[in-house]
C-alpha cells in the first residue's frame, strides 16, 4: 500500500512538472487559476502543520511548547530564510518550554 501511494504520488508529481514542458502548450494559463495557485502553498502548509500535530485519535496537540516552537520557526524563517536556523530555534523553544513543564 505504501509503495502504491509512493508510485501514485511519483506519477502525479512528474505529470505536474511535465505538462507544459513536454506539450509546449502555448495556451495561456487562466489568470484566476494562477492567482489561486499562489494561495495553495500557504493553505496547504498551514493545514499540514495542524495535521502533523494531530494524533491518530483526532486530538490536536497544540499546547504552549508547540505554539512557541511554531512561532519561532515562522519568525526565524521569515527573517533569515534559513531553514536550519528556523528548525533549530523551533526545537530549542519547544524543548525548553516542555522541560519547564508548560
Amino acid at each position: 500500500m505504501v509503495l502504491l501511494a509512493i508510485v501514485l504520488t511519483g506519477i502525479g508529481t512528474y505529470a505536474l512538472r511535465a505538462v507544459f514542458v513536454v506539450t509546449l502548450s502555448r495556451q495561456r494559463f487562466p489568470v484566476l487559476a494562477l492567482r489561486a495557485l499562489e494561495y495553495v502553498a500557504p493553505a496547504v502548509m498551514g493545514a499540514l502543520v495542524i495535521s502533523m500535530l494531530t494524533s491518530s485519535e483526532g486530538q490536536v496537540a497544540l499546547g504552549i511548547p508547540e505554539l512557541a516552537g511554531l512561532a519561532v520557526a515562522a519568525l526565524v524563517a521569515a527573517r533569515t530564510r534559513n531553514h536550519i536556523y528556523a528548525l533549530a530555534g523551533a526545537l530549542g523553544a519547544y524543548w525548553l518550554l516542555g522541560y519547564a513543564g508548560l
Partner: peptide
C-alpha cells in the same frame, strides 16, 4: 516536532502579503 516546525518555516517564507497570512491561519 521537527516536521511541523519545518513546514511552519516553509509556510512563513511564502507569506508576502496579509492575504496569504489570513489564508494560512484560516487553513490551520
Amino acid at each position: 516536532f521537527a516536521a511541523p516546525a519545518l513546514f511552519m518555516g516553509l509556510l512563513a517564507v511564502t507569506i508576502d502579503r496579509w492575504q496569504k497570512a489570513a489564508v494560512a491561519i484560516s487553513a490551520m
